[in-house]
Design a protein around this nucleic acid. Structure first.
Lengths: 357, 357
DNA sequence: CTGAAAGCGCTTACAG
DNA sequence: CTGAAAGCGCTTACAG
């Protein structure tokens, strides 16, 4: 009616909108169900939770009322009285990151069917944002926390860990190592480098991750140690700094070339860097793997579809996520977290080849 | 002490663990602060919310107690009494998807500083999981919902939309078009195809997305219409079905080749399909773009780093996410959502070239 | 098996 | 400006 009358007026949209909002009735509560089923709220609650016997007839009446009024319990209210929110906070770094996305997916899978739900918050690799995200999660009463990487201080983390269970992936809390999923960064990097050495490469470049990151440091150490074991020198001119992004890989490749470094292989600190380096190589007319062999780290879902498919160190983030989720569930059940370090595996595809000539 | 005594016993770890749990004191409440500051809980609440005057001295005492006891308000309790959770539910499809990840990142950015926080749940492209995720979000009392794609029924969505504000991205709710961010799938696909035609290509293959998806259908329609406008026939043998994954792109390419189709260009329904097709082409010894030109859709962050960098239709998911977030905020503020359709833009990179010869 | 009462942690009228 | 009271929606002893 209103609609008709106002058909052409400028205010039409606003009025329409008001109509929409007015349609929103407030949802039924336990008391509404109790009334409809002629029982007390306690009884409704009993059929809801199922942990107390209820006369079949009353149960049926309650169930009917629930269905009829389309009732759904308010989980926040339930959390308040039970002291358990059934939510697990996940601190991730960015929703747009493939790496963290796969980890997050694994966590979701690992939590599925447990009754617990993940709540994600991102730190954008910034200490202040990470802390804000962490605080928000705790304020929302999550029952446990899974922290994925990041750089917030151990002090903050330990303070939280004193209040609720915390599991970390890819970072360590001193004193709580049991609750930290360690990644074999060092081992993986070493085997990647050794793979290149085994193929006959002698001048192997390395593009690092963010030097402040533990992952990046350990991978570099693995690279250096593999060289040392083969009695190959560690040449600073063959090492360029990256920051785990594609762009940094491209830039690092440029800088390597600009400084006149000669190399027949590259070990990139992660796959994204390898993508960037690969583009840089093709811009220079260098073929992979004929002219330069390339190894990454992580094995992102898309790495198998690079041209050529990327040889890389698989972390299996999906499995790590599942593992972290399971450990959290165990912690919540009062059991040992039981977190075995995540094994790493070299996946040889087509971006590496025997040194020619 | 305990530790010492049990040093070598099998039960040691369990006991250690018990210690850890015992350290978790329950956090202080408003009443604790009130007591510590010698005021009533009401006054504590007043300084917390700041929307009622409080005597400076009492305020100072309260603030001191808060700091001293390290108090943080229980957001669930607050949500219960206020009837607002300050949470926005986001239904996404998969945490591991780059496409949805970028959308999610945009939403986070758009919500930043608003006081509202996103809560993500994924539907894994499955109707039942989507409904479960949606239900969970509503049960957790989110104040609004942003639905990213998906295939759950409009009935379910409308039912929810009648209870809380809903904004959708990449799907339409009949009757609530104002709250739906439309993507120019048709226009984008048409301009991508036209680009290939302008380069002289006449036999242009298309690898589709999931046929049940609206996006996929509209993109195909854009492809077909562009051909028709150029008086080019639509040849079914040049159309292969994909499902938006890299793998499906590879498979579709194989099937195209297997059926003996001849083509000089491919329009893929999204970038991931293009990645897979690109690998398939290189497996066949076909160069991009010298032998076959390739266009994608979406412009994922990594597409600029493909070799060669992919020509594609940019959707700008980041901006779409921000836009959806802003619209949600407006809806919550009782204003018009004001959702302009997301414009699409052809980004010409290096995977397309003029037809030779 | 069931209802009345108390309470989870907070906020908001209400009456000073 | 402030405290006592009531209440958000639910659950859990408590006493039948």
């Amino acid at each position: 009616m209103m609609r008709r009358l106002c058909y052409n007026t400028p205010a039409r949209q606003e009025i329409d909108f008001g109509d929409t909002m007015a349609d929103m009735h407030k949802p039924p509560t336990v008391s509404d169900i109790a009334e409809a089923a002629s029982v007390s709220p306690s009884t409704v609650s009993r059929v809801l939770t199922g942990n107390s016997p209820v006369h079949p007839e009353k149960r049926a009446a309650v169930l009917a009322a629930i269905k009829q009024l389309n009732f759904r319990p308010n989980l926040n209210a339930r959390a308040l009285v039970r002291g358990k929110s059934m939510a697990i906070g996940i601190l991730t770094q960015s929703m747009a990151s493939q790496f963290y996305g796969e980890l997050a997916q694994g966590i979701e899978e690992g939590l599925a069917g447990s009754g617990y739900h993940p709540i994600f918050a991102s730190g954008q690799w910034r200490r202040d944002e990470e802390l804000a995200a962490l605080t928000m999660l705790v304020d929302r009463q999550v029952d446990a926390l899974i922290v994925l990487g990041g750089s917030q201080s151990n002090v903050d983390l330990s303070a939280i860990s004193a209040q609720i269970p915390v599991i970390t992936v890819g970072r360590t809390m001193p004193g709580d190592e049991r609750q930290c999923l360690r990644v074999q960064n060092y081992e993986g990097a070493r085997s990647a480098t050794r793979h290149l050495i085994d193929l006959g490469h002698r001048r192997i470049a390395h593009i690092t991750g963010i030097p402040a990151h533990n992952d990046a440091r350990e991978r570099r150490r693995g690279y250096e140690d593999a060289l040392a074991e083969a009695r190959l020198p560690v040449d600073e001119r063959l090492i360029a700094e990256g920051d785990f992004t594609e762009q940094s890989g491209l830039l690092a490749l440029e800088s390597l070339v600009a400084r006149g470094a000669s190399f027949s292989a590259i070990f990139a600190a992660n796959d994204q860097i390898a993508y960037g380096a690969r583009l840089g190589l093709s811009r220079r007319g260098l073929r992979v793997p004929e002219d330069v062999s390339l190894v990454g780290f992580d094995d992102l879902l898309t790495s198998a579809y690079m041209t050529p498919p990327l040889t890389t160190v698989r972390q299996n983030m999906l499995e790590q996520g599942r593992s972290a989720a399971r450990a959290t569930l165990r912690l919540l059940a009062g059991e040992e977290p039981d977190l075995a370090p995540a094994a790493t595996e070299l996946v040889v595809r087509e971006s590496t080849a025997r040194l020619r000539g």
